[in-house]
Design a protein around this nucleic acid. Sequence first.
DNA 1: CGCGCTTTGTACCGATCGTTCCAGCCTATA
DNA 2: TATAGGCTGGAACGATCGGTACAAAGCGCG
Lengths: 203, 203
Amino acid sequence: MPRADARDAPRRNPKWQARLEAIIDTSARVFARQGYHATGINELCEANDLGKGALYHYIGSKEGLLAAIHDRVMDEVMQGAERVAQAGGSPPAQLEMLGDELLDVIHRYPDHVWVFLHEFPALTGERAAAFRTRRQQYERRVEAVLRAGVESGDFRALDPWLTARAWLGMHNYTYLWLKPGHRLSARDVAKPFADIFIRGIQN
Amino acid sequence: MPRADARDAPRRNPKWQARLEAIIDTSARVFARQGYHATGINELCEANDLGKGALYHYIGSKEGLLAAIHDRVMDEVMQGAERVAQAGGSPPAQLEMLGDELLDVIHRYPDHVWVFLHEFPALTGERAAAFRTRRQQYERRVEAVLRAGVESGDFRALDPWLTARAWLGMHNYTYLWLKPGHRLSARDVAKPFADIFIRGIQN
DNA sequence: CGCGCTTTGTACCGATCGTTCCAGCCTATA
DNA sequence: TATAGGCTGGAACGATCGGTACAAAGCGCG
């Protein structure tokens, strides 16, 4: 009797994984619309067209499903940050690329990101701790770029922590309205945002 | 038999109103910690040291209580915006004052603001509509200041709607960490934020 | 004290919560 | 076609959900 959990996907066969991904995506849409706690298991079953037994066979628990949605977002965000680090360039260029990548994730995964930004307090114990760590890792990358810019003289003297919060807020908050099909693409937003922010902090 | 509702406070005597305000504040703290849907009526009773009968005598319904928390925030925010409008001044000065006022509310009502930004989708029907309208009213004020700045030549050509979203995100997102007792006061944050944003958009 | 209204605690409602369990179906392999 | 195991639906679990009913207690005022 294999104890199912959304986290041990790697150990399962591809069909099983694909099914789980579909469940994660569908459930993210439902959670984004109604909220995590306001959504019952029965609604998830109906949305995914599965019985309770089948659903639990994949997700392990409701909170496991929530964690899987968080992971999906954080995977993408961290991959974007990694691409930026690989690309190199001046601190202003790095910051603009980080914005491009972040807004691209928000634009491509609006439901997952909504859940991520609204329901992260619902994670408990070990899962909450793991999530906080990853989120901090990303935020530290932003701070590091700002610190580098101050040292290089590209940016004026500023508090890297506080300035990172300003940057994160400006970008993350787009989750409220930045969606596929919107009149503005991710890049349409990223460019003006970078113009404002980088002008605002440069020497 | 008076049908109680958190909204008809004006018709009650002062002692009743004071009690209701205390319930709103206490409940906001609980909601902010655990989430609206994750908090049961029994928990609210315990937090407020009241039985169900007494609690319902004041709040009318759980959603009425949630709406009262929203109203408290929006009242303060709109009052701040009104003060700014009364004060007058150039668009850049107006924008800085708006930031001061907004961060002051976030700093003074961290729990209420948390609830407001996280749980507004839980409002339904007429209450949801009323809330959306008020929120839009505030956002329009920000857009208006930006538009005025473009016309006056203080700000460069920009999309007022999109730029307002950037400004709102940068400020609203502070709800995650800006609290009384934090090393930074509201003004400590508002000033650097205004520096970044106004430099970023000026001509 | 005694009247009338407000405030309060408690018992209780039907519904729904997340989860478990299990019998049987489906499918892949031999 | 036989067999094994992943997969599935649905019944059932105890707990808790938001809300109501109602009577007693508290209270201001005569």
